[in-house]
Design a protein around this nucleic acid. Structure first.
Length: 525
RNA sequence: AGGGGUGUAGCGCAGUCCGGUAGCGCACCUGGUUUGGGACCAGGGGGUCGCAGGUUCGAAUCCUGUCACCCCUACCA
């Protein structure tokens, strides 16, 4: 295999084109050439991410500041996530409901820490009507239509939901109340990034009410497990389950649980959170129940959520310099069939017939498959396109394959392609999809292991953070001051206190005092 | 929120310093030739130069304001 690099100098940047000439090796597997046009991760990770999201048609910026348009391909992935998560919520006894987008301003301030946490990023509705402007062309806010009480567009729904739960809960018999909602929320962010941070985003928020402390904690932990299992089984993304430090805790929570994932640039991403809310919201909204003995007691609460941010996590966990790499369970199409058309109409119709036959076989086996019969684009173009979009597998069938009873199958994760018999393709593809998923999971796990460093001193901490990044496991004295100082000096924060294996193995790396926990530090999104 | 940068055709950009009929590549349309990894040739269509004011005989270009996006810090899921 020969590599030729061409470097073109333009005014502002260097553009690298890479051509890879392919030959069959002994196993008749060849390596797919690299795509062109996409910024390489090593050159500029942020730019790579932005270009990838735009070029693959996952999402784009709308004209509304900070708000994105999730395009059909991106939304298809989100729908697959939703479908699976929803199934898992139902399996753990939850039901869906829907609460208002608007929250009376006064509700938000009933829980002190909560309002403190969200006040700075709330969108506020002040009027309910427009009228034609004096110029007769534009419209203006009608000053006479001012709301008595302003409405906040929900940044999260604890307040409106707990205000509602007050009417729903009287006795222990009404508990537990296990409700989830799929919704949009708005947090007026200054700096935005597609999927990772937008002013409006989609999510699910579970809000549960319980008759005891322990039951609520169990619920918070149960839902954290649901998230962790979803991340690992469905997204092929390894996560660390842990507790947030006081600084990072959700506004209004007694304890915040989280799953933390490591992205390919060495930064951490919080992929999901689950909160034990204690009786904070019950007290703020006066939600009491009568226990079996007839005593009145405040209700215990949890809330938990994952958002479209998972899309960002998915992209940054698996994708490469050629584009998106989707784990099969989240690929809108797991296989694309491309008939290699020539000028001969008769051969083309045979190719098409075979492609349909194969597609039917795969569909019967439950594989999501698409045929690309567009004859205005050449196959090479399509190959590059589907690689960019991260289709896990691709079947190409040409005249030669018809004669030989074969197809060519390419897999996205390893970029290999080889010839296979066209018999029993559903099994071939199913096996390959399972293998791809395993490969992606192993690869991501290996990356995390290689980029998790146990550090013994603050010097080592700074050095590893600077040179390598990733997760840094270190002993911490448990104080918010120490955490804050480390953050100021290095930019790294405590991602979590792991649920497993958090016993300190020595003194605090910063203060040298007795350590309380062994925690995971990282720079984070 | 602070610092830096960018807005010109669907996408990527040149033109802006030094004002004078808006250009290039890709994409698109038509015709032809091609075809096992992003085809080639010929012809064609498309832009109130982010938006709003101002200066000027004349503004993509100069001035003022404003909006959006990107990068680095700060904040969050």
């Amino acid at each position: 295999m020969a590599l030729i690099f061409m470097i073109l100098k333009t005014d502002k940047s260097l553009i690298f084109f890479t051509f890879v000439f392919c030959k069959y090796n002994k196993s008749h597997t060849k390596i797919i050439p690299m795509s062109k046009g996409l910024t390489k991760r090593a050159d500029d990770y942020s730019q790579w991410y932005n270009e990838l999201v735009l070029k693959t048609g996952l999402a784009e910026h709308s004209d509304v500041r900070g708000c994105m348009v999730i395009k059909p391909y991106g939304f298809a992935i989100w729908e697959l996530m939703k479908e699976e998560l929803d199934k898992r919520f139902k399996e753990t006894g939850h039901v869906n409901a829907y609460f208002p987008l608007f929250i009376p301003k006064s509700y938000l301030s009933k829980e002190a820490a909560h309002v403190e946490g969200f006040a700075k990023e709330c969108a506020v509705v002040t009027h309910y009507r427009l009228k034609t402007a004096p110029d007769g062309k534009s419209v203006v806010v009608d000053p006479e239509a001012k709301l008595e009480e302003e409405l906040i567009i929900r940044p999260t729904s604890e307040t409106i939901i707990w205000n509602t739960y007050r009417n729903w809960i009287q006795s222990y018999r009404d508990l537990p109340l296990l409700i989830n909602q799929w919704a949009n929320v708005v947090r007026w962010e200054i700096r935005t990034r597609l999927f990772l941070r937008t002013a409006e985003f989609l999510w699910q928020e579970g809000h549960t009410a319980h008759s005891s402390n322990t039951e609520a904690i169990e619920e918070a932990e149960r839902m954290l497990d649901v998230y962790a299992e979803f991340a690992e089984k469905f997204m092929a993304m390894p996560v660390i389950k842990g507790l947030k430090s006081v600084n990072e805790r959700f506004a209004g929570a007694v304890e915040t649980y989280c799953i933390e994932a490591l992205m390919q640039d060495g930064k951490a991403l919080q992929a999901g959170t689950s909160h034990f809310l204690g009786q904070n919201f019950a007290k703020a909204f006066d939600v009491k129940f009568a226990d079996k003995e007839g005593n009145e007691e405040y209700v215990w609460a949890t809330s938990w959520g994952v958002s479209t941010r998972l899309m960002g996590a998915l992209i940054m966990t698996h994708s490469d310099d050629e584009g998106l790499v989707l784990p099969p369970k989240l690929a809108p199409f797991q296989c694309v069939i491309i008939p290699f058309f020539f000028k001969d109409e008769e051969i083309n119709s045979k190719l098409m017939a075979k492609a349909k036959e194969i597609a039917n076989e795969l569909r019967q086996a439950g594989i999501r498959v698409q045929i690309d019969d567009d004859d205005t684009k050449r196959p090479g173009f399509k190959f590059a396109e589907y690689e960019l979009k991260g289709y896990p597998t691709r079947i190409v069938i040409g005249p030669r394959d018809l004669e030989n009873g074969t197809v060519e199958i390419a897999r996205r994760d390893t970029k290999e392609k080889s010839s296979f018999s066209n018999e029993n393709l559903s099994e071939t593809i199913s096996t390959m999809l399972a293998d791809i998923e395993k490969e992606l999971r192993n690869r991501a796990l290996k990356y995390r292991e290689e980029n998790t460093s146990v550090v013994e001193s603050f010097e080592e901490f700074k050095q590893v953070l600077e040179q390598k990044g990733g997760f840094l496991v270190a002993n911490w004295d448990g104080s918010a001051e120490t955490e804050e100082k480390i953050k100021e000096e290095t930019g790294a924060t405590i991602r979590c206190i792991p649920l497993e294996d958090n016993l300190p193995s020595g003194p605090c790396i910063y203060t040298g005092k007795e350590a309380k926990h062994k925690v995971v530090f990282a720079r984070a999104y």
